[in-house]
Simulated scan of single mutants.
Amino acid sequence: MAQALAGKLQAAIERKAWSVAELSRQSGVARYTITKALTGEAWPDLLTIANLERALEADLWPGRDV
């Protein structure tokens, strides 16, 4: 699940052409947290995922298609 979230997060960042720093500014989520999610090393809590989804205007929750 963490790897699926990481893939969706990476794709959404690329679609926006944002850096991790820009996503951090737009979402209010720490760069460290975003980086850990991108590498699949951490599973963000639901509020963090919601903040990332709102900023990226993307569905990141992997449970729908995994």
Rank of each mutant, 00 (worst) to 15 (best):
M1Q: 12
A2V: 12
Q3Y: 13
L5S: 08
L5D: 03
G7W: 04
G7N: 15
L9Y: 13
L9R: 02
Q10F: 12
Q10H: 14
Q10G: 08
A11F: 11
A11M: 06
A11G: 11
A12S: 12
I13W: 09
I13G: 03
I13F: 10
I13M: 04
E14R: 00
E14L: 07
R15F: 09
R15M: 08
R15V: 09
K16E: 08
A17R: 07
A17F: 10
W18A: 02
W18V: 00
W18E: 04
S19L: 01
S19F: 04
V20A: 02
A21G: 06
A21F: 10
E22L: 06
E22T: 06
E22V: 05
E22G: 02
S24C: 03
S24I: 00
S24T: 03
Q26W: 02
S27Y: 07
S27Q: 01
S27D: 00
S27F: 12
G28F: 11
G28D: 06
V29G: 07
V29K: 10
R31Y: 07
R31N: 09
R31I: 05
R31T: 10
R31E: 12
Y32V: 11
Y32G: 09
Y32T: 12
Y32R: 01
T33H: 06
T33Q: 10
T33Y: 09
T33L: 07
I34A: 04
I34Q: 09
T35M: 11
K36R: 13
K36D: 09
K36E: 13
A37L: 03
T39E: 01
T39I: 13
G40L: 11
G40H: 03
A42L: 14
W43N: 15
P44L: 02
D45Y: 14
D45Q: 13
L47A: 14
L47D: 15
L47G: 14
T48S: 11
T48W: 09
T48K: 02
T48F: 06
T48P: 05
I49K: 00
A50K: 12
A50Y: 11
N51T: 06
N51D: 11
L52G: 02
L52M: 11
L52F: 09
E53G: 01
E53P: 00
E53H: 08
R54V: 07
R54W: 10
R54H: 07
A55T: 03
A55P: 04
A55Q: 00
A55R: 00
L56T: 05
L56K: 00
E57R: 01
E57T: 05
E57L: 12
E57H: 12
A58W: 11
A58E: 10
D59I: 04
D59C: 11
L60W: 06
L60D: 01
W61R: 13
P62Y: 15
P62H: 10
G63A: 10
G63N: 04
G63C: 04
D65R: 01
D65C: 06
V66I: 13
V66R: 13
V66L: 14
V66N: 12
V66C: 07
